[in-house]
Amino acid sequence: MTATTLTERYIAATVKSLRPESQADVRAELQASIDDAVEARVEQGEAREQAERAVLTELGDPARLAAGYAERPLHLIGPRFYLVWWRLLRLLLIVVPLCVFGAVALGHAIAQAPVGKVMADSLVAAGGAAIHICFWTTLVFVVLERTGSTTKIDTWSLDQLPEIGDDGAGRNELIASLVFLGVAVGALFWDRFRGFVIVDGEGMPILAPDLWPWWIGGLLLLIVAEAVFAVMIYRRRRWTIAAAVVNTVLAVVFLAWAMVLLVQGELVNPAFLSHIVSAGGEGFAAGDAEAAGEGGIFRILAVLLGFGIAAGVVWDIVDGWLKATRRGGGSRRNRLVA
């Protein structure tokens, strides 16, 4: 009797996931086919029980057989949707966790949370966002795959061809860098000696005058180094790993310069701040009092400025490494072709 139950169990396992209307038919046909196969083996002199085991083993996993009957795919996401899924997932994973991290960190920093809490909460939020993105995006595509959707979201056209990566070592990059650095130097001197803000006919520097000469001197040195670096990149005509390292060092030094002054409250001219307070009148004072819990309006502005500078610096570093590694890939290909 055990032999019969094996077949019964096998058939039950196969048909249970099929549509109700086809279950009886598949059950009867499969029963006949298995019986035929067992019979054939028994006629060859095999013991019935052994023959049955052999036949069922040969038929394999009932879930696989059922997938064949129901024409269900045996993969999560097939070739039709895989690339669309992967491109979308990559894009979302780059953009969303970064935004979440930045937003949570900014909120905590304004609320004067301790540094450890800022980092921990931002990381946890970004990680959670990443996991959610992976899960829900994949789920949508699994459903598309299972419902046999014929949505034409995967038609590819020539317009989607990416440009061959600009290696960032051309004349335009050099001119842009030098112009930017020149403007920065000009702004520093203009701010000190002529003033962007004119109070009672006299220029009032925005940057603290105490920064001259040493801090500003350091900044000017850094600017010169950046300019030399930009020219070097242009003359070598390519970004290398070494160039990315130098770029990173320069960016970090600038970040340190700005952050130290910002945190110590020595970046902006105190006279300029008190001028804003007096010019802002009562409305400003009321707003400042309301923001007292976060350390006042100027602290919030300082946090925002710090985040802005940090984001710019991080992007500069990442951009340098992207250019260096892309360039590396390009030259490898060239060697292969040559």
């Binding site: 046909e29 006949a32 035929d36 040969e58």
Partner: peptide, 28 residues
């Protein structure tokens, strides 16, 4: 023809096929 008989026929004529491929194929 029926499932198992066809499986035998295919094998004898040089189209060796697995039962778990053939049975769903017939329905399809």
């Amino acid at each position: 023809g029926y499932g198992y008989g066809l499986l035998e026929q295919l094998g004898a004529r040089g189209f060796a096929t697995d039962a778990n491929t053939l049975y769903p194929l017939l329905r399809r």
